[in-house]
Write a protein that binds this DNA or RNA. Structure first.
Lengths: 196, 196, 196, 196
DNA sequence: GATGAATGAGTTTTCATTCAT
DNA sequence: GATGAATGAAAACTCATTCAT
């Protein structure tokens, strides 16, 4: 067993286990013992690498947002034409509930805490602002390069994100509510109409 | 204090107290003692009128959805012209986070449980389906009376609801994200464009 | 509704309900509410006619012993020949678990409390002593009237009662342990051999 | 105090403490806190080693029956002559209330629950059947080796056990009811008469 | 570093008893 | 007399956190 870099391994091990537990049984019913069991470590070790349970949970959230961000960067950023970039992003947004359903389950689990938990609120706020501002940038990019007209709607980025969030939540709660495939097309059309 | 015929009063008293507690401190940190204290009763009486804590929480959710429904009925249904009806409803949807911020905080608190709690999931699913189907009816009504063209977008009702939900959540988490007033106008335009 | 004699009626109503509850679900799992429900009265009324729950339970025990005693008197005492009297009593003892299985279930429920509950202990002790002394009298009567020889065994009455008690308990716990019919005959022979 | 390998010790510690509590104050009035206090541990640890209170109580019963069985094996089995074996066993049975009064108190505490508690009933049934069948074997052994005649009474083993049980209970409830010394002799004679 | 036994404060729930009506 | 709503103390049980090994 390597001793060096063990810390990073253990932390990742615990965070991933906690994430899985939250998705499987909900934050509400999650004990430190559950996490330790899922991670294959003792409860004690969790307190060696994390301040306390809350610390673990906050890191799960941050990590989850970071991964989501990384994934967007990896799939959207390589694309160069600004128009395609936005289209790809919208596609991503639309695929998210299917491609990464865990993300929405996790998000829902934390959103409920946001209003009564300062730290959670802050992290979630930052995430939403980042997403909105990223969409703003994508649109601005298109406008700058004359691919889009000035977008015709005020607050379009917020609406795009809200649509993605709302549809994601709705589909997470009720898989039969709509067909994500067709919804994807509608979404592209709707938004496309506003920027060309 | 009368002792007879208090059942309805007590139940309402407890449910309202529980609702308030959830909004104030979150379901996660909510004890029966808290509810009893907020309701001004003993913990014992809660078990006299409700099966257990879960029973109370589920009733808070149902009651909250019922009130929300009643309010829509009271404000939207009196309006007769189908076009105005839909507009009014959209307005309602848009005002909701401001007019009734508690509703969204409450909703968020329960959404997190939905995936790991059968009963919650069912109630939330029903609610969403009802809302979507209500919007469908409003649009169909307009089309039938030749006020709207057939709506141009597939899944428009789902998108309208998703927008309302997404914006509501975003605004609940981050009051500074956008100005609801202006957002209201954008929303009306966006949707208006799709049904006339 | 008659007002006079209501007290006796109510008391009997409650005691009988409590007895039934104990037999059905055990003293351990018996609440005052259960008793009230079974008796078709309110919990309050129980405290009007009895000092407290313990008072009810003690009266159930006494009443049960009294009835058992009355039944013996009614079936055994009318018989005049001392020999037949004892035979009849033994028969009674043997039939008890079948004829009145509730009695044994009840008895077992209280025997467990006897060692840690002064009042119960006293009542049970009195009952056992009475039963033993009744058998002593029956035998003495037979000897006095020259129907039996002096009984050949020391402590015969105690042994007879112990056999009845032991077999009753065993059969109550395990109906398949033996056939009470055949056991009855064996018992009569066994005891008969010792007093003639 | 060592922390490792304490499982067996702690379990025994808790079971023994629970047994003591039951004997001292009765199952009816026994809280987990009492057990923890008597065992000198925290309440939490009890739930670490046992599923719940019921689990502890059932193990107390099983353990008690096991010890009783072990003791019989240790005292009766070394004896080889079948006749002496049975005599020794009867002696044991007779001495039990004196030698091990706790056993009867405990037994009484559980017998009351048997009828309304499936698991208790099963354990007690098994115990009684084992005891009866052990006596059957002892007699059969004697008959096989021509030490006893075929026993003259049908159901003799059941009667022997019932006598032991009945006398034990009676003497537990009322120490003054008879002299166990003399009772022992009577018992031996009585039974001896039936198998020689 | 790693373990998991141990703690005890806190949570849900029950229930005998009281008392206003 | 009669009711059953209301209380609150006590019970069973959970779980984050600590710490001896």
């Amino acid at each position: 067993m390597p001793k060096l870099g063990m810390e990073a391994v253990r932390r990742e091990q615990v965070i991933e286990a906690a994430r899985k537990c939250i998705v499987d049984k909900g934050v509400a019913n999650l004990s430190v013992k559950d996490i330790a069991l899922a991670a294959g470590v003792s409860t004690g070790i969790i307190y060696h690498y994390f301040k306390n349970k809350e610390d673990v949970l906050l890191r799960v959230l941050r990590e989850s947002f970071r991964k989501s961000y990384d994934q967007v960067m990896a799939t959207v950023e390589p694309i160069k034409p600004p128009g395609d970039k936005l289209v790809k992003y919208i596609e991503n947004l639309n695929q998210a509930p299917q491609d990464n359903p865990d993300f929405f389950v996790l998000l829902l689990n934390y959103l409920g805490q946001a209003k009564s938990h300062e730290a959670v609120n802050e992290i979630v706020q930052d995430f939403i602002r980042n997403v909105v501002s990223y969409v703003e940038d994508l649109i601005a990019l298109g406008v700058a390069e004359d691919v889009f007209d000035q977008d015709k709607a005020d607050h379009l980025p917020e609406m795009i994100v809200a649509l993605g969030l709302g549809l994601g939540i709705m589909w997470t709660i009720d898989l039969d509510l709509f067909d994500p495939e067709r919804m994807g097309k509608n979404l592209s059309e709707l938004i496309g109409g506003y920027i060309t």
